[in-house]
Simulated assay, not measured.
Amino acid sequence: MQKVISFGEALVDMLSSKVSKPAGKTEAASHESFTKFPGGAPANVAAAVGKLGGNSVFVGQVGADMFGDFMKASLEDAGVDTRYLLQSDEGKTALAFVSLDDHGERSFEFYRNASADLLFSADDFQESCFEGGGLFHFCSNTLTEPAIRAATLAGIDKAKSAGCIISFDVNLRLNLWPEGADPFEFIWACLERADIVKLCVEELNFICRGQVQAQVIERLLSLGIALVLVTDGGKPLRYHTQERTGTIQPPSVAMVDSTAAGDAFIGGLLYALAEQNISAPLLSDFVAIESALLKSALTFASACGAYAVAHQGAFSSLPGKEDLTPAYFA
């Protein structure tokens, strides 16, 4: 089985649990309590692959603090190799406070200023991490500051040199970017280096900048991207390759919490590719010729996403293979 290397932020999600005002009390109508969960999009993907039984490796940095210890232990409990997870005395583990509305949709408030994940440098990558190739996955949250952006690009280059498939989930969080900063050019710089790209429809609209979606999809494919995936909640997943375009209808489930839905999806897809030992030289043929196998992999990934939507939290909502009952393939 191929190795899946996930790079980026590992942070603690402080997930809301709204509490109604007790009868007869005069304070605000409701207040929120928060419970800690392991999170961070790349860490979620690593955990998704690990819980499915894959060869999952996480690369990044947390603080040498109680939250960093919590993240390391949580990744290991999910079956993730953490030998390349650093713990820094110079920065704290990042936190994300996540409020949910009545439909399970999220809003985020990040505490990530000079946090440990942003202090990871290009020199912190260990060459042994990339030995044997595999799949290298990252998101745009490591593009927000110059130093971590440089580290991300260095990691992509090292992974490509080692023969890895490059997977990029845009996962745009504008409130993580400095005021006045425009992520557009930095996202496109990474799109130009990727083999697999996942965007939600809002992220696709962001990178369109006045062009119609079809034109931008064509541009992405012209860059040499083998597989472009566009998600839209419970609406059909669109996939685009050099040869074809298709859709996959996600399973219909009652939404509880969408926090890790996209990460469960991409983790499921990377696991499916790794399980079939799809290497970089084989990827183009896999998406071009083996359309039935590609659809099977995307259906499996969609089942993983649906399971996550139906459960609360990030790591805690990620399925093992035994959790993916036939209902998640309906």
Results as ranks from 00 to 15, higher is better:
97 F>A: 10
143 L>A: 07
165 I>T: 09
86 L>H: 02
141 N>E: 14
51 K>N: 06
157 D>A: 13
75 L>V: 13
66 M>F: 13
60 G>L: 08
68 G>F: 02
38 P>C: 02
101 D>M: 01
32 E>Q: 12
124 D>N: 14
161 S>L: 08
111 Y>P: 01
100 L>R: 04
109 E>T: 13
109 E>S: 11
126 Q>H: 09
57 V>D: 02
45 V>C: 05
119 L>H: 11
93 T>L: 04
41 A>W: 03
78 A>H: 07
163 G>V: 05
79 G>H: 08
61 Q>S: 14
41 A>S: 14
87 Q>M: 14
166 I>A: 07
41 A>V: 02
169 D>N: 03
102 D>S: 13
55 N>F: 07
90 E>T: 11
38 P>T: 02
100 L>E: 09
76 E>M: 13
42 P>D: 14
42 P>F: 01
122 A>S: 14
71 M>Y: 07
129 C>Q: 10
139 C>P: 08
82 T>L: 04
51 K>D: 04
80 V>L: 04
78 A>W: 02
111 Y>D: 04
62 V>R: 06
116 A>N: 10
56 S>V: 02
76 E>S: 07
39 G>L: 00
58 F>E: 02
94 A>D: 08
105 E>T: 08
148 I>L: 09
55 N>G: 07
96 A>S: 10
161 S>K: 13
71 M>W: 03
153 L>R: 06
147 A>S: 14
147 A>R: 11
104 G>Y: 04
155 G>Q: 04
34 F>W: 07
168 F>P: 01
145 E>N: 13
80 V>T: 04
159 A>W: 03
82 T>A: 05
87 Q>S: 15
48 A>P: 03
169 D>G: 06
150 A>H: 13
